[in-house]
């Protein structure tokens, strides 16, 4: 039973519930304008990366290194599975309509990948919702890889499967369990 202790069903997904919230003192998770105001006020004495991570949720076994630097004020706080129920994945349709399906030059070859898999600009909404569905499931299961971390935030790679092809998609982690797509294609997981 012990290995199942931290496993629960949340929003239709079976998830490992040993999750934490990255906390930097004084910074609220929302609203965004207030977060920015405090981050700016703190910027001289506090690390931009740490303050950007505040409020973000990670699986405890798959999180940025803590502490990030000497004299880091950050700490991690266990969060309940109830908080994870509010987790969301957001994929703007424009990532497909205005980027992937523009032309080969602007998409830098990515349009060909998606058209080869049988998709077109007309599928932008479908792709967007499918990316959101798969990404949320992967995120809640801890099935993500930590990517770049800087003042813009923590990016994660999430595997997406479409028509039997697996590839990485790039997402940004935001507070309160929100992840948002940065780029729909970030490299192959299997050979095309």
């Amino acid at each position: 039973m012990s290995i199942l202790r931290n496993i629960k069903e949340i929003s239709g997904n079976i998830v490992n519930t040993t999750w934490i919230e990255w906390v930097h003192p004084l910074i609220p998770n929302e609203p965004e304008i207030l977060r920015e105001a405090i981050r700016i006020a703190m910027a001289i004495k506090h690390c931009l990366i740490c303050t950007r991570l505040d409020g973000c949720y990670f699986l405890e076994s798959n999180m940025p290194e803590l502490p990030l630097h000497p004299y880091c004020d950050c700490y991690k706080e266990n969060i309940s599975s109830d908080k994870l129920k509010n987790a969301t994945a957001y994929c703007p349709i424009s990532k497909f309509k205005d980027y992937i399906f523009t032309d080969e030059i602007k998409s830098k070859g990515k349009m060909y990948i998606f058209t080869s898999m049988g998709f077109s600009s007309d599928d932008s909404y479908t792709l967007s919702t499918e990316f959101e569905r798969q990404a949320l499931s992967c995120y809640l299961n801890g099935n993500y890889s930590l990517d770049f971390l800087d003042q813009n935030g923590q990016r994660i790679g999430i595997p997406i499967t479409l028509n039997n092809h697996m590839f990485w998609s790039g997402w940004m982690v935001y507070p309160n369990g929100k992840i948002q797509l940065v780029t729909p294609f970030g490299g192959w997981i299997d050979e095309f």
Binding site: A43, L48, K108, K110, I113, D150, N152, T183, F185, G187
Partner: peptide, 25 residues
């Protein structure tokens, strides 16, 4: 942008469907 840094996707697919570079700030 965040403190003058913006995310740019340099990721490229070549003629052999190989991926290189990536998305960085």
């Amino acid at each position: 942008a965040v403190h003058d840094y913006i995310l740019v996707d340099f990721g490229t697919i070549d003629g052999q469907m190989k991926y290189s570079k990536g998305c960085i700030s």
